[in-house]
C-alpha cells in the first residue's frame, strides 16, 4: 500500500483525513484511486484534459515527480506521496 499525504486545504474532501492509502503501482493510479473515492477533489487536481493542474505538484518522498517520471512514476509498497499546492502570487 502506498500512502498519500493530503494537503490541509483539500482535507475537506477527505472528511478531515490527512492520509489516504491505496494499492497503486504508479502515482497516477494512486491519485485516480483518491478522486474516484472522494467526491469533489478531482477538479482541484486535474484539468479538463486530464492533466495535473499547473499549481499542483506531487512529491515522492522529498522529490518532485517532475524530476522522476511524472505521474507515471512507479510506486513501491510503503512509498509516501504528497500533494503540494504551488504557493505563489504577487501584487501586479
Amino acid at each position: 500500500m502506498a500512502t498519500l499525504i493530503i494537503p490541509t486545504p483539500l482535507r475537506k474532501f477527505t472528511g478531515g483525513e490527512s492520509i489516504y492509502t491505496a494499492s497503486a503501482s504508479t502515482v497516477k493510479e494512486l491519485l485516480v484511486a483518491l478522486y474516484t473515492s472522494h467526491d469533489g477533489i478531482k477538479k482541484h487536481l486535474f484539468d479538463d484534459e486530464g492533466e495535473l493542474r499547473s499549481f499542483i505538484r506531487v512529491y515522492l518522498g522529498d522529490e518532485d515527480i517532475n524530476e522522476l517520471e511524472g505521474v507515471d512514476t512507479k510506486l513501491e509498497d510503503r512509498d509516501e506521496v504528497s500533494i503540494i499546492p504551488a504557493i505563489a502570487g504577487g501584487s501586479k
Binding site: 490541509t8 499547473s54 499549481f55 505563489a88 504577487g90
Partner: peptide
C-alpha cells in the same frame, strides 16, 4: 496572480 493558484479553504 494570487487568484490563479489559490486553494480553497486557506
Amino acid at each position: 496572480h494570487d487568484l490563479a493558484v489559490a486553494m480553497p479553504w486557506f
